[in-house]
Design a protein around this nucleic acid. Structure first.
Lengths: 176, 176
DNA sequence: GTCTCGCTGTTATTGTATAACATCACTTTG
DNA sequence: CAAAGTGATGTTATACAATAACAGCGAGAC
């Protein structure tokens, strides 16, 4: 189990939006980007780091550090919290993953490489997380902050609600 | 120690912005609003609930649940985590406090009563938290979400950076 | 070869949050 | 007033999230 994880995954959501997409590509393309990036930046893409990236890319949902750790443990890649946190920190620092504060969990980045200020759409029903790009700095809020003299360094924008599929399925249904 | 906590507090920040303000009023007005609201809604404003509201109003900064619990414990109002969390949940549910996800902490609401979608400006230097109002639903992001069919139920908008005072004090200085 | 630096492995601890259940107080109803 | 019901409290226990600290290893620099 390496850079290709073309298991079913069937109705997986997307970090690019909530549409369907070819999931195998997500993982292979994502890992390829990571490989390239690490080579270019002379960073070590260790097995744990790569595997964590694969896990996040394959799931396309926010995963807790301990959930990821469980997988690593099963695969003999590490069993203690710092192992998972270190890999996640590496991915986050280099823009290949993001932390979703609302969920205390992590997701693979949808547009690795490019520095950006992500916003997340979190479906409370099916737990999928879509990543959108934002420029909070430019909206009303950004203007208000600038006017007040507040210097924005980092933004957290997370919208919780129902994704299109779950909306269609009706409030009652759990969907998947 | 009840509805009035006019201790010095000196350079306290504000949840309304980063300007100075008469702090005693924050607490008394806030508690008064809470009292009225609970009376109107037939909700029980118990000692713990009121005290937690006072604590948050008096500090005007994000406080961890356990930090609040320490105070309650000293005052004999409760010693176990659920005591603090229940009071905080009550205040959050009724709009008198907000959770700052980024900090896993809580702040008193600046405009209790009115339902709103708060945004927070968090100073990483002096830890003050200002509350601004937003309409994320209306910006680019809101439009994008609507277009995608995502139904927003709750928003988390948190901007981290430097408040005016800390910007002026220079990146090196800690300010206060 | 050895020095250095960064990653790994591990132990331990701190902080955040909630489940579950017994009890207590107040209010409603008879 | 008494019984029943509702909701807050007190407490135990535990789960989940995150990090400090340190020993050891391995690849590349010199």
């Amino acid at each position: 189990m390496s850079t290709d994880m073309s298991q079913p995954g069937s109705d997986q959501g997307s970090s690019k939006g909530f549409e369907q997409h070819d999931h195998a590509h997500c993982v292979s393309d994502g890992v390829a980007a990571l490989v390239d990036y690490c080579a270019a930046e002379r960073l070590k893409l260790t097995p744990v780091r790569q595997r964590v990236a694969e896990i996040l890319l394959a799931e396309h949902r926010a995963m807790g550090a301990y959930e990821i750790l469980d997988i690593l443990r099963e695969e003999g890649l590490g069993s203690q919290p710092p192992v998972a946190y270190r890999a996640l920190d590496f991915l986050v620092k280099n823009g290949f993953a993001h932390k979703v504060e609302r969920l205390n969990a992590f997701v693979a980045c949808s547009h690795p490489g490019a520095t950006h200020t992500p916003a997340f759409l979190i479906c409370r029903s099916c737990n999928k997380v879509a990543e959108a790009d934002t420029s909070p700095t430019k909206g009303d809020l950004g203007r208000a902050a600038a006017a007040a003299g507040f210097q924005i360094e980092q933004t957290v924008v997370e919208l919780e609600g129902l994704c299109p599929t779950c909306v269609d399925a009706g409030p009652a249904s759990g969907q998947a």
